[in-house]
């Protein structure tokens, strides 16, 4: 019983804490994909966000400034993806991977200056909630309502469904696609900063460890719906919280093996979603992505 208590006490908050960085990225990538682009570069955008957020927090002493810097860094890097896939129409998968590689390089280079810096981060409010968690949760209804119930959201989705029809209706598609990529950049940068400034409170090279790419897969699990991004992110957070707790509880299974749990859980739900989408073609996928997803 004692072991089970140690495992379960405060699990909801730990889950929320682990899910928060991912939730930002997931919402951002969801909006990007709804505008008709899949951006694998979110991994690199998270990394520059994490490095910039950590550096600015350490220098200024203000986690809020750190988050803002992370968002700016993510947005800046996402302009590279926007130029590649909108201005010159390069392949989105290869462009995303190039942006990831560039973000990894830039954050590793800038990160050498961050070694040894210390930050305090935020004192959690009652119940262990931090401002970062609150911001991420608040963004769910903002994105959900904005995308699904406003005029701008309707145009945004129309561009993702069919740029040709959107153009015929008087909408300029590339405005929305670039906006989609940049919003994804802001939110993935925020997610990276939330990771380094609030969750781990450290900087390490490559510290996002695939969270951005997991988010790309979980967007499909969430059926491109910002409201469903919350449960998808919580699933990853729960797997991560459990792996950390089993480790603390001296589980017979090695900690290193437990770390694979969030990835395997994400891959599992991703595969199940794909299998179900097969029976209901489309399944909420923006039609303009169809050619990329089901070749």
């Amino acid at each position: 019983m004692a072991a089970a208590d140690a495992l379960l006490t405060g699990l909801p908050v730990s889950t929320l804490r682990g899910a928060t960085p991912l939730l930002f990225v997931l919402l951002g990538e969801c909006l990007t994909q709804r505008a008709g682009r899949i951006n694998l570069g979110v991994e690199g955008q998270m990394l520059v966000g994490a490095a910039a957020g950590y550096g600015v927090t350490a220098l200024s002493g203000s986690p809020a400034l750190g988050l803002a810097a992370g968002a700016a860094a993510g947005a800046l890097l996402s302009t590279v993806f926007a130029v590649l896939t909108v201005a010159v129409d390069a392949d989105p998968f290869a462009s995303g991977l190039a942006v990831w590689m560039l973000g990894f390089g830039v954050s590793a280079f800038a990160g050498t200056a961050l070694v040894g810096l210390r930050i305090d981060g935020w004192m959690p409010w009652a119940g262990g909630i931090t401002p970062t968690i609150a911001l991420a949760l608040a963004l769910v209804p903002v994105c959900g309502f904005g995308l699904l119930h406003t005029r701008t959201g309707l145009r945004w989705r129309a561009v993702g469904e069919s740029p040709e029809h959107a153009r015929a209706a008087g909408v300029t598609p590339w405005h929305y696609i670039v906006a989609g990529v940049l919003v994804g950049g802001v939110l993935s940068g925020l997610g990276g900063a939330a990771l380094s400034v609030d969750y781990t409170r450290t900087w390490a090279e490559g510290m996002t460890a695939g969270r951005g790419l997991v988010a790309v897969g979980l967007v499909i699990v969430a059926r491109w719906n910002p409201w469903l991004a919350l449960p998808a992110a919580l699933l990853f957070g729960l797997a991560e919280a459990l792996s950390l707790r089993l480790q603390a509880a001296d589980s017979a299974v090695s900690a290193h093996l437990l770390h694979t749990l969030p990835y395997l859980a994400s891959l599992g739900v991703f595969a199940i979603t794909c299998a179900r989408l097969r029976r209901r073609p489309g399944g909420g996928a923006p039609a303009a992505l169809g050619a990329l997803l089901a070749r």
Binding site: L40, F93, A209, G210, L213, V214, V216, G217, I220, S254, H256, L257, H259, T260, Y263, L264, S266, L267, F270, A271, C274, A275, R278, L293, A294
Partner: peptide, 23 residues
């Protein structure tokens, strides 16, 4: 046979394999 998009499944498994080596 399902079909699950190979780009995302192969990417996710990269981290699993790296962690197996560490383990």
């Amino acid at each position: 046979f399902v079909p699950v998009h190979e780009t995302i499944s192969t990417l996710m498994l990269n981290w699993v394999a790296a962690m197996l080596v560490t383990w």
